[in-house]
Amino acid sequence: MSDDLTLHAHLVGRQGSRADLNTPVLILDRAALDRNIAALAALAAAHGVGLRPHAKTHKSVDIAKRQLGAGALGVCCAKIGEAEALAGGGIKGILITSPVAAPRAIERLASLAARADGLMAVVDHPLVAARIDAALATEGAALDVLIDIDPGIARTGVASPEAAVALARVIADLPTLRLRGVQYYCGSQQHIEDYAERRAAIVERTGYLRTVIAALAEAGFASDIVSGSGTGTHRIDLELGVFTELQAGSYVFMDKQYLDCDLTGDGEIPFETALGVDARVVSANHAALVTIDAGFKALSTDGGVAVVRQGAPEDARFAFMGDEHAALVAPGIGERLAPGDPVTLTVPHCDPTINLYDHYHVVEGDTLVAIWPVSARGRGR
């Protein structure tokens, strides 16, 4: 069975080798990636705020190492499986941002805490905190934890300042847990396209966060770490000055969802589009439509549809045509493109699209320069 390395390893370093890649294939522009990493690192540093980028976006040891090399405190992982994969690749300072509650997962968390430098996790329920404490005691390990605060979407997190204080008191009595602060991620606000509307929503939600932090402080629990934010709100959150570290993730790639947002208030796009999917025309038998080899199995569908970036007319409209195929529709496109012609797509939503691939094909211009594994692909538990 062919895989990316079997198909493409011999192309690494050969001038113009991107044109010889079997498609569909996940493409990463290394220079743009590094510029994005450097841009947010510099912005956070200028505000005296730490950066712990969310690796659920890229799931990559190689990219995490580049972020740490640019000054990041560590990275975030959504699940214990992601954290195991990245820690196994030598990544330190991992924060697991979703509650770990299943019995076997708690055992794995305790085991990882015994061997992973700087591991942290969030908790949002006294029962789970007690179970983690018992598992850590068995391993002879300890763990720094943050209280996860619900920003109003009822997904995870304590639901009130009083609940935060009650949980803090439970944690204080558990010998293996060390309370370091809070996590607050306003996920539903990240993709509000209008800057003023998004800012107003975040100002309101940050006001609530301040009440929780104040309640904890009054009860004797200082929040040394206030972790949160995202690509959509990073500028606003830096301005408001509550977070001690940012969890932005998609900034390294920039998918269509974030390109549709005014991230800065002046229409400026602060990060480059570093990620794409290269596809090819496989059928061109109609004047106004061609078929490409990238369908549901090549692109996530939760963020809308892909956008043609290169290789087709600017007015070409993308439409899924099933598991294996999509159509590009535009007047005369079938007369301008032929089977085998390459097309580059900007992905709708980077995180789940990346999870469809085993490797990044890293390019500089038209040359394949590296093949990096998607280290935590499928590590959703």
Rank of each mutant, 00 (worst) to 15 (best):
M321P: 00
T264K: 08
L167Y: 10
A70Y: 06
H359G: 02
L143C: 10
V158Y: 07
G74S: 11
A200R: 15
S17F: 00
A370M: 06
A45P: 08
D4R: 13
D266I: 09
D20S: 14
K297V: 05
G16K: 03
H8L: 05
H325Q: 13
L136H: 10
Y251L: 15
L73G: 07
S160I: 07
T6Y: 03
F318R: 12
L337Q: 01
R198P: 12
A215E: 09
G228L: 10
D255P: 08
V122K: 03
V282G: 12
A219D: 09
G303T: 02
A163Y: 03
R379C: 13
G265Y: 10
T344S: 13
V242A: 08
D133C: 12
A215I: 07
A370V: 06
A222T: 13
P126Q: 06
D260V: 02
A217D: 15
N355V: 08
D358S: 13
M254V: 15
I106P: 02
A39P: 08
H325I: 03
H125D: 15
Q190P: 02
F221Y: 14
A294M: 04
G303L: 10
T346A: 10
A330R: 09
A39L: 04
I192T: 15
R104C: 01
G378I: 12
D260R: 15
L179Q: 07
R52E: 12
S98R: 14
A87R: 02
A215F: 10
L328W: 05
R52P: 12
V343Q: 01
D302A: 13
V122W: 02
Q310T: 07
P331I: 00
G81D: 09
T211G: 05
R377D: 10
A168L: 03
L40N: 11
L238D: 04
K65V: 03
V25E: 08
A248Q: 15
V12N: 00
R108N: 11
R131I: 00
F318E: 03
L167W: 14
D302M: 12
D150N: 15
L40C: 15
E193D: 10
I63L: 05
A141Q: 06
D260T: 03
V128H: 11
G152N: 11
V369D: 08
G207A: 12
R66C: 08
L289C: 07
P24W: 13
A135D: 07
I94Y: 00
S188P: 03
I333E: 00
Q183M: 15
L21W: 07
D315N: 09
V61Y: 11
V308M: 01
I192F: 02
I213F: 06
V362L: 07
V145M: 11
G241Q: 10
A338W: 04
S223F: 10
R317M: 14
G322V: 06
D34F: 05
M120K: 15
V343Y: 00
S300L: 08
L112W: 07
V363F: 01
L143N: 05
A163L: 02
A137Y: 10
R14N: 08
Q183K: 14
A135M: 12
L345V: 08
I213W: 01
A154V: 09
A214G: 01
T206L: 12
A219P: 02
G71Q: 09
V25F: 04
L289K: 15
G48W: 11
